[in-house]
Design a protein around this nucleic acid. Sequence first.
DNA 1: CGGGAAATTGATGACTTTCAAGGTGTGTGG
DNA 2: CCACACACCTTGAAAGTCATCAATTTCCCG
Lengths: 255, 255
Amino acid sequence: MKPSINITADNTIKCDACSLNQICIPNKLTDMEVEELETSIDKSIKLKKKQFVFRSNEEANGVYAVKSGAVKTSVTNKNGLEQVVEFHLPGDLLGFDAFDTGKHKCNATALEDTLLCRISLEEFDDLCDRMPGMRKVMFHQVGKEITHSQNLLLSLGQQQTDERFAAFLLKVAAHYQSRGFSSKEFVLPMLRQDLSNYLGMAVETLSRIITRMSDDGILETNRRMITIKDISALEKIAHASCAPDIVPPPATNII
Amino acid sequence: MKPSINITADNTIKCDACSLNQICIPNKLTDMEVEELETSIDKSIKLKKKQFVFRSNEEANGVYAVKSGAVKTSVTNKNGLEQVVEFHLPGDLLGFDAFDTGKHKCNATALEDTLLCRISLEEFDDLCDRMPGMRKVMFHQVGKEITHSQNLLLSLGQQQTDERFAAFLLKVAAHYQSRGFSSKEFVLPMLRQDLSNYLGMAVETLSRIITRMSDDGILETNRRMITIKDISALEKIAHASCAPDIVPPPATNII
DNA sequence: CGGGAAATTGATGACTTTCAAGGTGTGTGG
DNA sequence: CCACACACCTTGAAAGTCATCAATTTCCCG
Protein backbone atom coordinates (compact mmCIF):
# COMPACT_ATOMS: atom_id res chain seq x y z
CA MET A 1 0.00 0.00 0.00
CA LYS A 2 1.37 3.36 -1.04
CA PRO A 3 1.93 6.17 1.49
CA SER A 4 -0.63 8.96 1.74
CA ILE A 5 0.23 12.22 0.10
CA ASN A 6 -1.95 15.20 -0.62
CA ILE A 7 -0.04 17.33 -3.02
CA THR A 8 -1.37 20.69 -4.06
CA ALA A 9 -0.89 21.13 -7.77
CA ASP A 10 -1.08 24.25 -9.85
CA ASN A 11 -4.64 25.21 -10.35
CA THR A 12 -5.03 27.21 -13.49
CA ILE A 13 -7.61 25.48 -15.65
CA LYS A 14 -11.13 26.82 -15.24
CA CYS A 15 -14.16 24.59 -15.68
CA ASP A 16 -15.22 26.27 -18.90
CA ALA A 17 -11.78 25.56 -20.33
CA CYS A 18 -11.67 21.97 -19.12
CA SER A 19 -11.92 19.34 -21.83
CA LEU A 20 -14.36 17.39 -19.69
CA ASN A 21 -16.87 20.15 -19.11
CA GLN A 22 -19.47 18.58 -21.38
CA ILE A 23 -19.55 15.33 -19.42
CA CYS A 24 -18.80 16.64 -15.93
CA ILE A 25 -20.98 18.63 -13.55
CA PRO A 26 -20.96 21.86 -15.62
CA ASN A 27 -22.99 20.29 -18.42
CA LYS A 28 -26.09 20.51 -16.24
CA LEU A 29 -25.47 24.07 -15.06
CA THR A 30 -25.90 27.57 -16.46
CA ASP A 31 -22.83 29.72 -17.09
CA MET A 32 -23.55 31.68 -13.95
CA GLU A 33 -23.92 28.53 -11.91
CA VAL A 34 -20.60 27.23 -13.25
CA GLU A 35 -19.00 30.50 -12.26
CA GLU A 36 -20.19 29.98 -8.71
CA LEU A 37 -19.33 26.30 -8.67
CA GLU A 38 -15.82 27.22 -9.74
CA THR A 39 -15.05 28.92 -6.45
CA SER A 40 -15.97 25.82 -4.46
CA ILE A 41 -13.82 23.30 -6.24
CA ASP A 42 -10.50 21.98 -5.08
CA LYS A 43 -8.83 20.99 -8.33
CA SER A 44 -5.59 19.92 -6.80
CA ILE A 45 -6.20 16.34 -5.70
CA LYS A 46 -3.38 14.16 -6.92
CA LEU A 47 -3.29 10.46 -6.23
CA LYS A 48 -0.72 7.82 -6.88
CA LYS A 49 -1.64 4.31 -7.95
CA LYS A 50 -3.28 2.29 -5.16
CA GLN A 51 -3.96 5.27 -2.92
CA PHE A 52 -7.45 5.59 -1.50
CA VAL A 53 -9.72 8.47 -2.40
CA PHE A 54 -11.89 7.42 0.51
CA ARG A 55 -12.68 4.30 2.45
CA SER A 56 -15.73 2.52 3.74
CA ASN A 57 -17.22 3.77 7.03
CA GLU A 58 -15.26 6.96 6.72
CA GLU A 59 -16.79 10.39 7.16
CA ALA A 60 -17.31 11.79 3.67
CA ASN A 61 -15.12 14.72 2.65
CA GLY A 62 -16.91 15.58 -0.53
CA VAL A 63 -17.88 14.68 -4.03
CA TYR A 64 -15.17 13.95 -6.59
CA ALA A 65 -14.78 14.16 -10.34
CA VAL A 66 -12.12 12.21 -12.19
CA LYS A 67 -9.99 14.56 -14.28
CA SER A 68 -7.46 11.99 -15.46
CA GLY A 69 -6.56 8.46 -14.49
CA ALA A 70 -9.05 5.96 -13.15
CA VAL A 71 -10.63 4.96 -9.84
CA LYS A 72 -12.33 1.76 -8.72
CA THR A 73 -14.99 1.57 -6.05
CA SER A 74 -15.51 -1.66 -4.16
CA VAL A 75 -17.30 -3.11 -1.15
CA THR A 76 -15.81 -5.58 1.28
CA ASN A 77 -17.47 -8.12 3.54
CA LYS A 78 -16.44 -9.04 7.07
CA ASN A 79 -14.15 -11.72 5.73
CA GLY A 80 -12.21 -9.22 3.71
CA LEU A 81 -13.59 -10.44 0.40
CA GLU A 82 -13.82 -7.61 -2.08
CA GLN A 83 -16.33 -6.97 -4.83
CA VAL A 84 -15.54 -4.23 -7.32
CA VAL A 85 -18.66 -2.15 -7.90
CA GLU A 86 -17.60 0.30 -10.58
CA PHE A 87 -14.71 1.77 -12.50
CA HIS A 88 -14.67 5.56 -12.76
CA LEU A 89 -13.06 7.09 -15.82
CA PRO A 90 -12.35 10.77 -16.63
CA GLY A 91 -15.52 12.81 -16.34
CA ASP A 92 -17.15 10.37 -13.93
CA LEU A 93 -18.27 11.43 -10.48
CA LEU A 94 -17.89 9.54 -7.23
CA GLY A 95 -18.64 9.95 -3.57
CA PHE A 96 -22.43 9.82 -3.74
CA ASP A 97 -22.50 6.59 -1.78
CA ALA A 98 -22.27 8.78 1.34
CA PHE A 99 -24.99 11.23 0.52
CA ASP A 100 -27.62 9.83 2.88
CA THR A 101 -25.57 8.98 5.96
CA GLY A 102 -22.51 11.17 5.48
CA LYS A 103 -20.32 8.08 5.66
CA HIS A 104 -18.94 6.19 2.72
CA LYS A 105 -20.19 2.69 2.05
CA CYS A 106 -17.43 1.67 -0.31
CA ASN A 107 -13.72 2.09 -0.88
CA ALA A 108 -12.40 4.17 -3.75
CA THR A 109 -8.90 3.40 -4.98
CA ALA A 110 -6.78 4.96 -7.72
CA LEU A 111 -5.92 2.40 -10.41
CA GLU A 112 -3.14 4.60 -11.74
CA ASP A 113 -1.82 8.07 -11.06
CA THR A 114 -4.97 10.13 -10.99
CA LEU A 115 -6.12 13.75 -10.82
CA LEU A 116 -9.39 14.63 -9.14
CA CYS A 117 -11.55 17.68 -8.50
CA ARG A 118 -13.40 17.89 -5.22
CA ILE A 119 -16.30 19.81 -3.71
CA SER A 120 -16.75 19.58 0.03
CA LEU A 121 -20.01 18.09 1.25
CA GLU A 122 -21.05 21.34 2.89
CA GLU A 123 -20.54 23.31 -0.26
CA PHE A 124 -22.22 20.65 -2.33
CA ASP A 125 -25.22 20.71 0.01
CA ASP A 126 -25.26 24.45 -0.13
CA LEU A 127 -25.09 24.52 -3.91
CA CYS A 128 -27.87 21.92 -4.09
CA ASP A 129 -30.04 24.20 -1.99
CA ARG A 130 -29.42 27.20 -4.19
CA MET A 131 -28.95 25.77 -7.68
CA PRO A 132 -31.61 23.69 -9.41
CA GLY A 133 -28.97 22.42 -11.81
CA MET A 134 -26.98 20.99 -8.93
CA ARG A 135 -29.95 18.98 -7.72
CA LYS A 136 -30.28 17.68 -11.27
CA VAL A 137 -26.66 16.59 -11.13
CA MET A 138 -27.30 14.72 -7.91
CA PHE A 139 -30.50 13.01 -9.04
CA HIS A 140 -28.95 12.07 -12.32
CA GLN A 141 -25.90 10.61 -10.67
CA VAL A 142 -27.80 8.62 -8.06
CA GLY A 143 -30.15 7.28 -10.71
CA LYS A 144 -27.17 6.32 -12.81
CA GLU A 145 -25.61 4.42 -9.93
CA ILE A 146 -28.80 2.53 -9.18
CA THR A 147 -29.20 1.60 -12.83
CA HIS A 148 -25.60 0.52 -13.00
CA SER A 149 -25.93 -1.73 -9.96
CA GLN A 150 -29.05 -3.32 -11.37
CA ASN A 151 -27.39 -4.03 -14.69
CA LEU A 152 -24.39 -5.53 -13.01
CA LEU A 153 -26.69 -7.71 -10.92
CA LEU A 154 -28.45 -8.86 -14.05
CA SER A 155 -25.12 -9.63 -15.60
CA LEU A 156 -23.71 -11.54 -12.64
CA GLY A 157 -26.93 -13.40 -12.02
CA GLN A 158 -27.90 -14.38 -15.53
CA GLN A 159 -24.96 -14.37 -17.91
CA GLN A 160 -22.11 -16.72 -18.65
CA THR A 161 -18.56 -15.49 -18.15
CA ASP A 162 -17.85 -14.73 -21.82
CA GLU A 163 -21.19 -12.97 -22.16
CA ARG A 164 -20.33 -10.78 -19.20
CA PHE A 165 -16.95 -9.84 -20.61
CA ALA A 166 -18.38 -9.10 -24.06
CA ALA A 167 -21.09 -6.92 -22.55
CA PHE A 168 -18.48 -5.11 -20.49
CA LEU A 169 -16.33 -4.36 -23.54
CA LEU A 170 -19.34 -3.03 -25.42
CA LYS A 171 -20.22 -0.77 -22.50
CA VAL A 172 -16.71 0.63 -22.31
CA ALA A 173 -16.66 1.10 -26.08
CA ALA A 174 -19.93 3.06 -25.89
CA HIS A 175 -18.53 5.10 -23.03
CA TYR A 176 -15.47 6.15 -25.03
CA GLN A 177 -17.50 6.79 -28.14
CA SER A 178 -19.84 9.11 -26.26
CA ARG A 179 -16.79 11.06 -25.18
CA GLY A 180 -15.41 11.43 -28.67
CA PHE A 181 -12.73 8.77 -28.44
CA SER A 182 -12.29 5.64 -30.48
CA SER A 183 -14.75 2.90 -29.64
CA LYS A 184 -12.59 0.28 -31.32
CA GLU A 185 -9.29 0.87 -29.63
CA PHE A 186 -8.86 1.85 -26.01
CA VAL A 187 -7.05 1.15 -22.80
CA LEU A 188 -8.50 -0.84 -19.94
CA PRO A 189 -6.84 0.93 -17.01
CA MET A 190 -7.53 -1.75 -14.41
CA LEU A 191 -5.64 -4.90 -13.50
CA ARG A 192 -6.97 -8.20 -14.80
CA GLN A 193 -7.47 -8.98 -11.13
CA ASP A 194 -9.85 -6.06 -10.64
CA LEU A 195 -11.69 -6.66 -13.88
CA SER A 196 -12.20 -10.35 -13.20
CA ASN A 197 -13.44 -9.53 -9.73
CA TYR A 198 -15.86 -6.97 -11.10
CA LEU A 199 -17.12 -9.51 -13.61
CA GLY A 200 -17.45 -12.20 -10.96
CA MET A 201 -14.94 -14.69 -12.30
CA ALA A 202 -11.41 -15.94 -11.65
CA VAL A 203 -8.45 -14.11 -13.21
CA GLU A 204 -7.54 -17.22 -15.14
CA THR A 205 -11.02 -17.44 -16.60
CA LEU A 206 -10.82 -13.86 -17.83
CA SER A 207 -7.39 -14.47 -19.28
CA ARG A 208 -8.63 -17.53 -21.14
CA ILE A 209 -11.64 -15.64 -22.51
CA ILE A 210 -9.38 -12.90 -23.85
CA THR A 211 -7.06 -15.44 -25.42
CA ARG A 212 -9.94 -17.29 -27.05
CA MET A 213 -11.45 -14.10 -28.44
CA SER A 214 -8.07 -13.10 -29.83
CA ASP A 215 -7.71 -16.50 -31.46
CA ASP A 216 -11.16 -16.08 -32.96
CA GLY A 217 -10.19 -12.73 -34.44
CA ILE A 218 -12.74 -10.85 -32.35
CA LEU A 219 -10.16 -8.63 -30.68
CA GLU A 220 -6.48 -7.92 -30.33
CA THR A 221 -4.74 -7.09 -27.10
CA ASN A 222 -1.44 -5.67 -26.14
CA ARG A 223 -1.31 -5.65 -22.38
CA ARG A 224 -4.03 -3.17 -21.37
CA MET A 225 -4.68 -1.87 -24.87
CA ILE A 226 -7.69 -3.49 -26.50
CA THR A 227 -8.61 -3.36 -30.17
CA ILE A 228 -12.04 -4.61 -31.15
CA LYS A 229 -11.85 -6.25 -34.57
CA ASP A 230 -15.33 -7.75 -34.85
CA ILE A 231 -17.92 -5.85 -32.92
CA SER A 232 -20.88 -7.81 -34.23
CA ALA A 233 -19.36 -11.05 -32.99
CA LEU A 234 -18.97 -9.38 -29.63
CA GLU A 235 -22.60 -8.32 -29.66
CA LYS A 236 -23.65 -11.82 -30.57
CA ILE A 237 -21.76 -13.22 -27.59
CA ALA A 238 -23.10 -10.57 -25.23
CA HIS A 239 -26.69 -11.39 -26.10
CA ALA A 240 -26.24 -15.11 -26.43
CA SER A 241 -28.38 -16.02 -23.45
CA CYS A 242 -31.59 -15.73 -25.39
CA ALA A 243 -34.30 -18.04 -24.21
CA PRO A 244 -36.32 -18.91 -27.33
CA ASP A 245 -39.75 -19.01 -25.76
CA ILE A 246 -39.75 -15.70 -23.93
CA VAL A 247 -42.67 -13.48 -24.80
CA PRO A 248 -43.05 -9.96 -23.46
CA PRO A 249 -45.57 -10.03 -20.62
CA PRO A 250 -48.88 -8.25 -21.28
CA ALA A 251 -49.38 -4.82 -19.80
CA THR A 252 -51.54 -5.50 -16.79
CA ASN A 253 -50.97 -2.62 -14.45
CA ILE A 254 -52.94 -1.34 -11.58
CA ILE A 255 -53.42 2.18 -12.81
CA MET B 1 -50.82 -13.03 -16.35
CA LYS B 2 -53.72 -11.78 -14.26
CA PRO B 3 -56.00 -9.00 -15.51
CA SER B 4 -55.57 -5.48 -14.28
CA ILE B 5 -57.95 -4.26 -11.61
CA ASN B 6 -57.81 -1.17 -9.50
CA ILE B 7 -60.29 -1.67 -6.74
CA THR B 8 -61.00 1.07 -4.29
CA ALA B 9 -61.19 -0.36 -0.81
CA ASP B 10 -62.52 1.19 2.35
CA ASN B 11 -60.08 3.68 3.70
CA THR B 12 -60.50 4.05 7.41
CA ILE B 13 -57.11 3.43 9.03
CA LYS B 14 -55.11 6.57 9.66
CA CYS B 15 -51.30 6.50 9.57
CA ASP B 16 -50.98 7.03 13.31
CA ALA B 17 -53.18 4.02 13.88
CA CYS B 18 -51.39 1.83 11.34
CA SER B 19 -49.37 -0.99 12.81
CA LEU B 20 -46.55 -0.18 10.42
CA ASN B 21 -46.14 3.48 11.32
CA GLN B 22 -42.84 2.90 13.09
CA ILE B 23 -41.19 1.39 10.04
CA CYS B 24 -42.99 3.30 7.30
CA ILE B 25 -42.67 6.91 6.19
CA PRO B 26 -44.25 8.41 9.36
CA ASN B 27 -41.33 7.32 11.54
CA LYS B 28 -39.22 10.11 10.06
CA LEU B 29 -41.90 12.79 10.32
CA THR B 30 -43.35 15.01 13.02
CA ASP B 31 -46.98 14.56 14.03
CA MET B 32 -47.92 17.62 12.05
CA GLU B 33 -46.11 16.37 8.99
CA VAL B 34 -47.89 13.03 9.26
CA GLU B 35 -51.18 14.87 9.46
CA GLU B 36 -50.38 16.57 6.18
CA LEU B 37 -49.01 13.45 4.56
CA GLU B 38 -52.23 11.70 5.44
CA THR B 39 -54.25 13.80 3.01
CA SER B 40 -52.00 12.88 0.10
CA ILE B 41 -52.09 9.12 0.43
CA ASP B 42 -54.20 6.76 -1.57
CA LYS B 43 -54.58 3.81 0.77
CA SER B 44 -56.80 1.78 -1.48
CA ILE B 45 -54.40 0.00 -3.80
CA LYS B 46 -55.31 -3.66 -3.92
CA LEU B 47 -53.36 -6.12 -6.03
CA LYS B 48 -53.87 -9.75 -6.81
CA LYS B 49 -51.00 -12.20 -7.10
CA LYS B 50 -48.87 -11.59 -10.20
CA GLN B 51 -50.29 -8.18 -10.99
CA PHE B 52 -47.83 -5.40 -11.69
CA VAL B 53 -47.49 -2.39 -9.44
CA PHE B 54 -45.49 -0.75 -12.20
CA ARG B 55 -43.33 -1.79 -15.10
CA SER B 56 -40.01 -0.83 -16.56
CA ASN B 57 -39.91 2.21 -18.87
CA GLU B 58 -43.28 3.28 -17.60
CA GLU B 59 -44.05 6.79 -16.45
CA ALA B 60 -43.98 6.73 -12.64
CA ASN B 61 -47.29 7.20 -10.85
CA GLY B 62 -45.92 7.56 -7.37
CA VAL B 63 -44.18 6.08 -4.41
CA TYR B 64 -45.64 3.00 -2.74
CA ALA B 65 -45.60 1.45 0.70
CA VAL B 66 -46.40 -2.23 1.26
CA LYS B 67 -49.22 -2.55 3.81
CA SER B 68 -49.66 -6.31 3.54
CA GLY B 69 -48.50 -8.99 1.16
CA ALA B 70 -45.22 -8.84 -0.73
CA VAL B 71 -43.80 -7.36 -3.93
CA LYS B 72 -40.76 -8.27 -5.97
CA THR B 73 -38.84 -5.83 -8.13
CA SER B 74 -36.82 -7.10 -11.05
CA VAL B 75 -34.92 -5.93 -14.11
CA THR B 76 -35.03 -7.58 -17.50
CA ASN B 77 -32.55 -7.58 -20.35
CA LYS B 78 -33.33 -7.46 -24.04
CA ASN B 79 -33.48 -11.22 -24.19
CA GLY B 80 -36.24 -11.33 -21.62
CA LEU B 81 -33.97 -12.72 -18.91
CA GLU B 82 -35.07 -11.53 -15.51
CA GLN B 83 -33.05 -10.73 -12.42
CA VAL B 84 -34.93 -10.20 -9.18
CA VAL B 85 -33.50 -7.16 -7.42
CA GLU B 86 -35.41 -7.05 -4.16
CA PHE B 87 -38.35 -8.41 -2.21
CA HIS B 88 -40.49 -5.79 -0.49
CA LEU B 89 -42.30 -6.82 2.67
CA PRO B 90 -44.85 -4.88 4.76
CA GLY B 91 -43.46 -1.49 5.73
CA ASP B 92 -41.06 -1.38 2.78
CA LEU B 93 -41.18 1.39 0.20
CA LEU B 94 -40.85 1.10 -3.55
CA GLY B 95 -40.94 3.28 -6.61
CA PHE B 96 -37.76 5.26 -6.00
CA ASP B 97 -36.12 3.75 -9.06
CA ALA B 98 -37.93 6.44 -11.05
CA PHE B 99 -37.01 9.41 -8.98
CA ASP B 100 -34.41 10.86 -11.33
CA THR B 101 -35.97 10.30 -14.75
CA GLY B 102 -39.63 9.94 -13.85
CA LYS B 103 -39.67 6.54 -15.52
CA HIS B 104 -39.35 3.23 -13.77
CA LYS B 105 -36.27 1.15 -14.35
CA CYS B 106 -37.64 -2.08 -12.99
CA ASN B 107 -40.80 -4.11 -12.80
CA ALA B 108 -42.70 -4.50 -9.55
CA THR B 109 -44.96 -7.54 -9.20
CA ALA B 110 -47.21 -8.69 -6.37
CA LEU B 111 -46.11 -12.10 -5.05
CA GLU B 112 -49.44 -12.62 -3.33
CA ASP B 113 -52.58 -10.59 -2.73
CA THR B 114 -51.20 -7.28 -1.59
CA LEU B 115 -52.34 -3.96 -0.17
CA LEU B 116 -50.41 -0.79 -0.91
CA CYS B 117 -50.46 2.88 -0.01
CA ARG B 118 -49.49 5.38 -2.68
CA ILE B 119 -48.41 9.01 -2.91
CA SER B 120 -48.41 10.58 -6.34
CA LEU B 121 -45.07 11.82 -7.61
CA GLU B 122 -46.30 15.42 -7.69
CA GLU B 123 -47.41 15.28 -4.10
CA PHE B 124 -44.26 13.49 -3.06
CA ASP B 125 -42.16 16.17 -4.78
CA ASP B 126 -44.24 18.84 -3.16
CA LEU B 127 -43.92 17.29 0.29
CA CYS B 128 -40.16 16.93 -0.22
CA ASP B 129 -39.98 20.64 -0.95
CA ARG B 130 -41.89 21.58 2.15
CA MET B 131 -41.02 18.91 4.70
CA PRO B 132 -37.43 18.26 5.77
CA GLY B 133 -38.55 14.87 7.11
CA MET B 134 -39.73 13.84 3.69
CA ARG B 135 -36.35 14.56 2.18
CA LYS B 136 -34.86 12.43 4.92
CA VAL B 137 -37.19 9.62 3.92
CA MET B 138 -36.06 9.90 0.33
CA PHE B 139 -32.34 10.05 1.10
CA HIS B 140 -32.61 7.20 3.51
CA GLN B 141 -34.48 5.04 1.04
CA VAL B 142 -32.15 5.72 -1.86
CA GLY B 143 -29.13 5.06 0.32
CA LYS B 144 -30.74 1.84 1.47
CA GLU B 145 -31.30 0.70 -2.09
CA ILE B 146 -27.74 1.46 -3.12
CA THR B 147 -26.40 -0.43 -0.11
CA HIS B 148 -28.70 -3.31 -0.83
CA SER B 149 -27.56 -3.57 -4.44
CA GLN B 150 -23.93 -3.49 -3.39
CA ASN B 151 -24.44 -6.25 -0.86
CA LEU B 152 -26.25 -8.38 -3.37
CA LEU B 153 -23.41 -7.83 -5.82
CA LEU B 154 -20.92 -8.89 -3.20
CA SER B 155 -22.98 -11.97 -2.52
CA LEU B 156 -23.43 -12.96 -6.17
CA GLY B 157 -19.83 -12.25 -7.02
CA GLN B 158 -18.05 -13.76 -4.07
CA GLN B 159 -20.14 -16.38 -2.29
CA GLN B 160 -21.03 -19.99 -2.93
CA THR B 161 -24.67 -20.92 -3.37
CA ASP B 162 -25.23 -22.24 0.15
CA GLU B 163 -23.48 -19.19 1.61
CA ARG B 164 -25.80 -16.92 -0.34
CA PHE B 165 -28.88 -18.74 0.86
CA ALA B 166 -27.73 -18.78 4.47
CA ALA B 167 -26.96 -15.06 4.32
CA PHE B 168 -30.37 -14.43 2.81
CA LEU B 169 -32.15 -16.32 5.58
CA LEU B 170 -30.23 -14.39 8.23
CA LYS B 171 -31.17 -11.11 6.59
CA VAL B 172 -34.84 -12.02 6.49
CA ALA B 173 -34.68 -13.20 10.10
CA ALA B 174 -33.15 -9.89 11.14
CA HIS B 175 -35.82 -8.05 9.18
CA TYR B 176 -38.64 -9.84 10.98
CA GLN B 177 -36.96 -9.45 14.35
CA SER B 178 -36.62 -5.70 13.86
CA ARG B 179 -40.34 -5.59 13.22
CA GLY B 180 -41.22 -7.50 16.36
CA PHE B 181 -41.92 -10.86 14.75
CA SER B 182 -40.24 -14.18 15.30
CA SER B 183 -36.79 -14.42 13.79
CA LYS B 184 -36.85 -18.21 13.99
CA GLU B 185 -40.07 -18.99 12.25
CA PHE B 186 -41.44 -17.08 9.28
CA VAL B 187 -42.93 -17.34 5.85
CA LEU B 188 -40.96 -16.78 2.66
CA PRO B 189 -43.68 -15.27 0.49
CA MET B 190 -41.93 -15.78 -2.83
CA LEU B 191 -41.80 -18.77 -5.15
CA ARG B 192 -38.68 -20.91 -5.13
CA GLN B 193 -38.27 -19.74 -8.69
CA ASP B 194 -38.08 -16.08 -7.65
CA LEU B 195 -35.82 -16.77 -4.70
CA SER B 196 -33.39 -18.85 -6.72
CA ASN B 197 -33.31 -16.17 -9.39
CA TYR B 198 -32.61 -13.52 -6.78
CA LEU B 199 -29.82 -15.63 -5.35
CA GLY B 200 -28.38 -16.30 -8.80
CA MET B 201 -28.82 -20.07 -8.89
CA ALA B 202 -31.05 -22.72 -10.46
CA VAL B 203 -34.30 -23.68 -8.73
CA GLU B 204 -33.03 -27.20 -8.32
CA THR B 205 -29.90 -25.98 -6.60
CA LEU B 206 -31.94 -24.01 -4.10
CA SER B 207 -34.18 -26.97 -3.47
CA ARG B 208 -31.20 -29.22 -2.84
CA ILE B 209 -29.67 -26.69 -0.45
CA ILE B 210 -32.88 -26.54 1.54
CA THR B 211 -33.12 -30.32 1.66
CA ARG B 212 -29.52 -30.66 2.79
CA MET B 213 -29.93 -28.06 5.52
CA SER B 214 -33.07 -29.81 6.72
CA ASP B 215 -31.22 -33.13 6.81
CA ASP B 216 -28.45 -31.44 8.79
CA GLY B 217 -30.97 -30.18 11.35
CA ILE B 218 -30.25 -26.55 10.54
CA LEU B 219 -33.81 -25.76 9.55
CA GLU B 220 -37.26 -27.20 9.02
CA THR B 221 -39.55 -26.29 6.19
CA ASN B 222 -43.17 -26.77 5.40
CA ARG B 223 -43.80 -25.32 2.00
CA ARG B 224 -43.08 -21.62 2.42
CA MET B 225 -42.85 -21.70 6.20
CA ILE B 226 -39.27 -21.80 7.45
CA THR B 227 -38.13 -22.65 10.96
CA ILE B 228 -34.52 -21.98 11.82
CA LYS B 229 -33.28 -24.64 14.25
CA ASP B 230 -29.59 -23.87 14.40
CA ILE B 231 -28.83 -20.24 13.75
CA SER B 232 -25.14 -20.48 14.57
CA ALA B 233 -24.67 -23.19 11.96
CA LEU B 234 -26.37 -20.86 9.51
CA GLU B 235 -24.02 -18.05 10.45
CA LYS B 236 -21.07 -20.34 10.03
CA ILE B 237 -22.18 -21.23 6.52
CA ALA B 238 -22.89 -17.61 5.60
CA HIS B 239 -19.39 -16.51 6.55
CA ALA B 240 -17.58 -19.55 5.30
CA SER B 241 -15.73 -17.82 2.50
CA CYS B 242 -13.00 -16.51 4.74
CA ALA B 243 -9.69 -16.27 3.02
CA PRO B 244 -7.07 -17.02 5.70
CA ASP B 245 -4.41 -14.55 4.61
CA ILE B 246 -6.52 -11.43 4.30
CA VAL B 247 -5.24 -8.52 6.34
CA PRO B 248 -7.12 -5.24 6.60
CA PRO B 249 -5.42 -2.68 4.35
CA PRO B 250 -3.61 0.17 6.11
CA ALA B 251 -5.33 3.53 6.22
CA THR B 252 -3.60 5.49 3.49
CA ASN B 253 -6.03 8.18 2.52
CA ILE B 254 -5.55 11.38 0.65
CA ILE B 255 -6.95 13.70 3.27
C1' DC C 1 19.47 -4.81 -15.85
C1' DG C 2 17.31 -7.57 -12.19
C1' DG C 3 13.54 -8.65 -9.04
C1' DG C 4 8.90 -9.13 -8.51
C1' DA C 5 4.31 -8.41 -9.75
C1' DA C 6 1.05 -9.44 -13.28
C1' DA C 7 -0.60 -12.28 -16.88
C1' DT C 8 -0.93 -16.54 -19.32
C1' DT C 9 -1.29 -21.48 -19.91
C1' DG C 10 -2.28 -26.30 -18.66
C1' DA C 11 -4.34 -30.04 -15.93
C1' DT C 12 -7.67 -31.42 -12.72
C1' DG C 13 -11.78 -31.63 -10.21
C1' DA C 14 -15.56 -29.42 -7.61
C1' DC C 15 -19.63 -27.18 -7.95
C1' DT C 16 -23.60 -26.08 -10.36
C1' DT C 17 -26.64 -26.42 -14.21
C1' DT C 18 -29.41 -28.95 -17.17
C1' DC C 19 -32.53 -32.43 -18.43
C1' DA C 20 -35.89 -35.58 -17.03
C1' DA C 21 -39.19 -37.63 -14.02
C1' DG C 22 -41.89 -37.98 -10.02
C1' DG C 23 -44.30 -36.06 -6.12
C1' DT C 24 -47.15 -32.66 -3.59
C1' DG C 25 -50.19 -29.13 -2.86
C1' DT C 26 -53.62 -25.65 -4.34
C1' DG C 27 -57.33 -23.81 -6.62
C1' DT C 28 -61.08 -24.06 -9.68
C1' DG C 29 -65.09 -25.88 -11.78
C1' DG C 30 -68.54 -29.19 -11.82
C1' DC D 1 -67.74 -30.67 -1.50
C1' DC D 2 -64.93 -33.42 -4.24
C1' DA D 3 -62.03 -34.35 -8.11
C1' DC D 4 -59.05 -33.16 -11.41
C1' DA D 5 -55.69 -30.24 -13.51
C1' DC D 6 -51.98 -27.48 -13.13
C1' DA D 7 -48.36 -25.20 -10.99
C1' DC D 8 -44.87 -25.77 -7.85
C1' DC D 9 -41.39 -28.31 -5.62
C1' DT D 10 -38.25 -32.11 -5.11
C1' DT D 11 -35.10 -35.74 -6.55
C1' DG D 12 -31.80 -38.19 -9.58
C1' DA D 13 -28.29 -38.69 -13.18
C1' DA D 14 -25.24 -36.68 -16.45
C1' DA D 15 -22.80 -32.94 -18.47
C1' DG D 16 -20.50 -28.43 -18.46
C1' DT D 17 -18.72 -24.53 -16.75
C1' DC D 18 -15.65 -22.48 -14.05
C1' DA D 19 -12.37 -22.40 -10.06
C1' DT D 20 -8.21 -23.98 -8.22
C1' DC D 21 -3.52 -25.28 -8.18
C1' DA D 22 0.86 -25.09 -10.24
C1' DA D 23 4.23 -23.70 -13.50
C1' DT D 24 5.85 -20.52 -16.84
C1' DT D 25 6.27 -16.28 -19.34
C1' DT D 26 5.93 -11.40 -19.80
C1' DC D 27 6.32 -6.98 -18.45
C1' DC D 28 6.99 -3.07 -15.35
C1' DC D 29 9.50 -0.43 -11.99
C1' DG D 30 13.25 0.79 -9.50
